[in-house]
Structure formats: C-alpha cells, structure tokens
Amino acid sequence: MTVGTRSVVCLGGANVDRKLRVAAPMRPGSSNPATARETFGGVARNVAENLARCGVPVQLLSAVGQDAAGRALLDGAAHAGIDVHAVQSIDGALTGSYTAVLDTDGSLFVALAHMDLCEQLTPDWLAQHADVCRGAALVVADLNLPAATLAVLVTAAAEAAAPPLVLVAVSEAKMARLPPRLHGVRLLVLNRGELAAWADTDALADGVARLRTAGVRDVVVTLGEAGLCHTTAAGELVCLAAPSVPPEAVVDVTGAGDALAAGLCHGLWTGAVAEQGWSRTCVHALGRAALTVQSAETVVPDTERFPPIPF
C-alpha cells in the first residue's frame, strides 16, 4: 500500500564527501599514508538518494555553492532520480564538505564537516517552500538546519493536516538545535551518543522516555554494529540485532546511518509501519545499512542488492 505519486521532501545537508582510509594504524601527530575517495553526501541528500533508487518520488531542498562541486552534486542527484530544481545555488559560497578519516578497518576515526551553507536555510527560506512541504507524503529533515527552521518545521507538523515529519540527527554537537517541544515529530532517528548529548544521560531508556515526553511519537536509536532500538505504540523499547558483517567485508561506514534512516522512511511512505509496527521495517533498514558498509559508495547504487521490502 503506497501513497501514490506524492513525494518525500528531504531538507538539509547536501555536500561532497571526502573519505581517506589509512593504510596502517593511525599515528597522531604524524603524516599517515592513506587512500582517498570523493563522493556526494549530506544526510538529507543521502536519504533522498536511497529513497529515489528504490523508486520513491523525492525532492531535495538544500543549498550548494555556485562552484564545480555544487554543479556536479546537482547533476549527480538528478541522475539518481532526485528532484533538485528547488535547491538554492548561492554565488560566492563553497559547497559543503564532509571529510572522513577512516581507520584500517573502515571505521570512522574522525570527521570534519563544513556545513556553513545550511545556515542559509532560514525560516524565510522554508516559507518559500511551504506549499511543497504541505503537499508531501512525508517530510524528512536533518539537524544541519538552523534551530529556528527546525522549530518552524516542528510547529507546522503538529497541525492536523500536516504530513508526517521525520528528523534525522547528524552529530552530538547539533542536538542542541532541537526545539524543547517536539509534538508533531513522527519519528526521530539518532545514535546513542546523540541521545546522551541531548538527554544528558547515558541511560538509553531514560533518554528515549524524555524524548517521548517532549512530544516525539517514535524514536529509533542506532547502535552501530550492535543494531538498534525502537519504540512501540505502547511506549516499550525493542532492540534488534544488526546483520552480521565479517570485519574483512567492511569497506566504509560512511552513509550507513543514512541508509538506515531511508529504510525507516520507506516503511512510513509505503504504509508498512502503520500496518505492522516498526520491527519488520527496522530489520529492512538494518539490512540497508549492512550493505552500505560493504560498499565504497556513500549510497549503494545497485537497488537489487537491497533486501525485500516488508509488507
């Protein structure tokens, strides 16, 4: 069961991913030989591409610079099936970048995010796209958006006829951008560190309970290779294991969390979550993440490799 041709609208970061993987154990304070790869990224853009490659109509609302990187990013997104006609191109600005330094096993050692352009995505910018958001089947926003813009989105989502709103965390540092009242948020996706940063507690159940008290309807907490935990309609917390991926098969963890978030959004878009609850959709989403860590690409381009969609 789908919502027909109504689009998913993704708002937030769109940038270039630069990934460097060291050839030997990291030596801080010294030059480390590494291999390098450049792909397109940004949480909102990655979620959008994952959805588009599964046949979901999706529109991206973001900003890039009027530079070679911005032009290439928009061309690549359009080629993947994303509607990018409303992405703002800003003269004199550099397209955002995310530089990830990966350890020898493909795990993240450190990442540097240059996302200044997202500060241009103000409430006034959002107002220009209000009709697009209101007509969407689902609105997905990452926390690269300014706090004021997120507050407007959450307030609008609480209206009776508004489409469901999914928020996707991007870092512990940006958890402070969440408004205190989160009524209207259908789903919040974040990892354990981001939850602890927001809730000021390492107790997972307590942190999730605080999010629900703030108004979030459902929460998914990702736990890396351990899997995830999701809430139920009754407010219980259910934990699911991730598929086993041999260490030698891990190529690059970049984009795995975004693939998982896209799998969750797909379950909302198809209606699978409404019919079956979260568990089967979460299993599907974990499968997407497992495939992504085995690929050098931030988004796996071969949709046939994705596990069957749960109905």
Score class of each variant (00 low, 15 high):
P25M: 00
P33G: 04
S295C: 07
A158L: 10
V132R: 03
A14C: 13
E172F: 04
L51I: 11
G255H: 06
A161K: 15
D202F: 14
S62A: 07
R192I: 09
E275G: 12
L182H: 04
H114K: 13
R6I: 14
I82M: 05
L268F: 05
A289L: 11
G29I: 08
V245L: 03
A259S: 00
L138E: 00
V166D: 02
T222H: 05
V132W: 03
H183S: 15
G255S: 04
D103V: 06
L73H: 15
T201N: 01
E49P: 09
R192Y: 01
H284P: 11
R53H: 10
L11I: 13
D103Q: 05
Q276K: 15
S279K: 09
R53A: 08
V154L: 05
A249Q: 12
D91Q: 14
L73T: 12
Q128E: 12
G207H: 03
E194N: 00
E275S: 14
T122F: 00
A241S: 06
A205D: 02
L190F: 02
V58W: 06
D258Q: 10
A203K: 12
G13I: 06
A199D: 05
F306M: 15
L11K: 07
R37Q: 13
L102N: 03
A72L: 12
V221M: 04
L51R: 09
E297W: 12
S107A: 08
L190M: 07
L138Y: 03
G12K: 06
E225S: 11
V110I: 13
V16F: 04
E304V: 10
D116H: 09
D302M: 08
H129I: 12
Q276C: 15
L143A: 03
G255P: 07
A151E: 07
R186W: 13
H266L: 12
V216M: 02
P246K: 05
L126A: 00
S30K: 08
V8S: 01
L121I: 10
L228I: 11
A162M: 15
T95E: 04
A151D: 09
G76Q: 12
R134L: 11
P28F: 03
L195Y: 00
H230V: 08
V300C: 01
L228S: 08
G4T: 07
S89C: 14
A93V: 13
D116S: 04
A78K: 14
N191E: 00
G255E: 04
A259L: 07
